[in-house]
């Protein structure tokens, strides 16, 4: 059942990417509508699956790499839908959903078994920490996509993409929202660390890099007020920032060994 739902969501997202891609050549409005519908279908399947897994486990299942990739992908789809339904960013969906496809695709070969819950993770603070962290990450991924699209629009140009000023505005919004949610993730995480280990900050590499992610995006919240960093500068910062996020989320676990409770 898990695998069927997983592959169905993947197929829906893959089909939506295909529609967005065809739309680049054929420029049909209907293709955009179908693509959006497919994303919605994929998202509903993923939401149902997440609900079922949560119900079966009795806790939000985000304690191994498969589960976090799945949740990240769900959050990215939700983020995209928010921007699409609110601002009608249409063709920008190609890049975002392609990223989501890579994310969900890399989770497919992994074992979807629900792992038992380590007692220290059995607290609502952990659940909040994870929800805010991955929704924040998804918004940073969205900002990364918008940054890439901004640079593409600026240097190559495509009339199906939103205007530069719109892309810039959306990028700033994604960064601000991401920062706000990531801040809540850091607060929940610090409170949890305090009751679980007696300190609200630990000198392990994952905690240090999470703080760096926070400081980086706090800096970005200000960079938009400085002329030199507006536009392209901001787009490049969004790309660099997502590099920091990826290293914190995946790099530390895969390249280095961490003693963070989730690695």
């Amino acid at each position: 059942m898990t695998k069927i739902m997983l592959y169905s969501a993947f197929a829906a997202y893959a089909a939506s990417v295909l529609c967005y891609l065809l739309n680049v050549g054929l420029k049909r409005r209907s293709l955009q509508t179908v693509a959006l519908l497919l994303v919605l279908i994929g998202f509903v399947i993923q939401t149902t699956q997440l609900g079922l897994r949560w119900n079966a486990a009795g806790f939000l299942p985000v304690t191994n790499l498969f589960a976090t990739q799945f949740f990240f992908s769900w959050a990215l789809a939700a983020t995209y839908l928010y921007f699409e339904l609110r601002y009608r960013i249409h063709a920008s969906g190609l890049f975002v959903m392609f990223m989501n496809l890579l994310l969900l695709g890399s989770a497919l070969p992994r074992d979807p078994q629900l792992p038992p819950l380590i007692p220290s993770l059995d607290t609502p603070l952990f659940t909040l920490h994870i929800i805010f962290s991955f929704v924040g990450y998804a918004l940073f991924a969205m900002a990364f996509s918008l940054g890439v699209l901004y640079l593409f629009q600026r240097h190559i140009g495509a009339h199906q993409l939103p205007e530069l000023s719109q892309l810039r505005k959306l990028n700033e919004e994604a960064i601000f929202l991401g920062f706000a949610l990531f801040t809540l993730c850091m607060i929940a995480g610090s409170l949890w660390a305090y009751i679980a280990w007696g300190t609200y900050f630990s000198w392990n590499i994952k905690s240090v890099w999470s703080t760096l992610v926070w400081i980086f995006y706090a800096g970005m919240c200000h960079a938009k007020f400085i002329r030199r960093w507006q536009g392209s500068g901001y787009a490049w910062l969004s790309i660099a920032g997502f590099g920091v996020v990826l290293f914190t989320y995946l790099g530390i676990g895969l390249l280095l060994e961490s003693n963070h409770p989730l690695e």
């Binding site: 000198w203 800096g219 960079a223 007020f225 400085i226």
Partner: peptide, 22 residues
């Protein structure tokens, strides 16, 4: 604000390098 960006960047870069040394 420019001072903010300089100081935040400095703290970030030093800690990035430092975390790997750690």
């Amino acid at each position: 604000l420019k001072l903010t960006i300089v100081l935040a960047s400095l703290a970030t870069l030093l800690t990035m390098g430092g975390s790997l040394v750690m």
